[in-house]
Design a protein around this nucleic acid. Structure first.
Lengths: 195, 195
DNA sequence: ATAAAAATATGACGATCATCATATTATATA
DNA sequence: TATATAATATGATGATCGTCATATTTTTAT
């Protein structure tokens, strides 16, 4: 039961961060939503809010990274993998009534100056996702240069589509982007055209 | 000198909003950075912070819309127009030391629930930008369906690239995306291949 | 069973938040 | 110049922010 409270706090923090950003998420919100006892906060997280935010972001990032990896592994082609990941994101958005999204974007845009560890974490997440895509593309026979640019395009447009999906409360932007990305990646593949 | 204070407050607010989001921007910050007198705030903006935020966002959105329109008008092809706009955005990012970006993304991700007027404003902005692109694409001979999807892809990926550019403090993501988008739009054009 | 440690409870701290009432100064109109 | 209105000054409001010291309860180890 010890780690239970701690874990619940992290999960709640991750959820609120994605919904309202760093400045929009207060410790009171976290305590209330997680039902965690007030006195436990600085016991489990002596570093206060910043430590909690960092751990929550790291957890959410790891989850997203794993989902992307699985989507790429389970797909026949990287093009289909990209699309599958985007569709999964769309499902989550619908399920959560458009309150979630990317774990790093809200934190980045909240400009938590001074929190270099958090900034590094976000940058590293983007780097990891990019690397996963790049590797998948190269393995499918796409030239390195091209794979590089494509990976960036994929991450950028999914990131942006998540924002737009939030604004519209509608997944059309995400699914349309997913289809476009699938086509773009497929067009870069060397052989084996789909009938 | 009357409207001067008011205008300066709006500009400062727009700047801070893009940098730190809704919750991260306090009235004290705005007053300090704009040098505006404390007593003037609720005189010029009886609606308080919300009114100020809405007006600032509207101003920033209008500016971005105008920039996009001009980029599309001045370009030979919509493909070049898209790229030109993205390059302009990259210039601004560099000039402002990566503190700015899209006027609506930070507000959207801050989930200012209840502020329906602000949410509507952001949605309308995305709609306007999409419409500008769509029209430009259709006029260049791209089929309506295709123009629709392309416009969404362009906005999504620029939006996302701006976030990533902020994280990296480097415009590579934005310029690479710009090149990819130019190619994607160019490929959809019916005739007249560039030598 | 007892001591030690881990976890939670309680409540207060100063700082800052958005808001606003009231007073004073500047500007325009007559 | 007299007067009305616009603009700024000042300071207080209650609420909430993150933080933390201290006390109590629960769990673990002996």
């Amino acid at each position: 039961m010890a780690k239970d409270t701690r874990l619940r706090m992290i999960e709640t923090t991750a959820r609120l961060l994605q919904h309202r950003g760093y400045h929009g998420t207060s410790l009171n919100d976290i305590l209330q939503e997680s039902g965690a006892p007030r006195g436990s906060l600085y016991f489990h997280f002596p570093g206060g809010k910043d430590q909690l935010v960092i751990e929550a972001t790291r957890a959410a990032v790891d989850e997203a990274t794993e989902a992307l990896r699985e989507a790429l592994v389970n797909a026949k082609t990287p093009a289909q993998g990209v699309r599958a990941y985007a569709e999964t994101a769309a499902d989550i958005m619908r399920e959560t009534d458009y309150t979630f999204g990317c774990p790093v974007a809200p934190v980045i845009l909240d400009a938590t100056a001074g929190l270099t560890e958090l900034a590094d974490l976000c940058r590293q997440a983007l780097e990891d996702w990019s690397e996963l895509l790049r590797k998948s593309f190269v393995e499918a026979g796409i030239p390195k240069r091209r794979a590089d640019a494509l990976a960036l395009l994929v991450i950028s447009s999914i990131e942006g589509a998540l924002v737009i999906t939030r604004a519209y409360r509608d997944c059309r932007s995400l699914t349309t982007t997913a289809a476009e990305l699938e086509a773009a990646v497929a067009a870069a593949l060397p052989q084996q055209r789909v009938t």
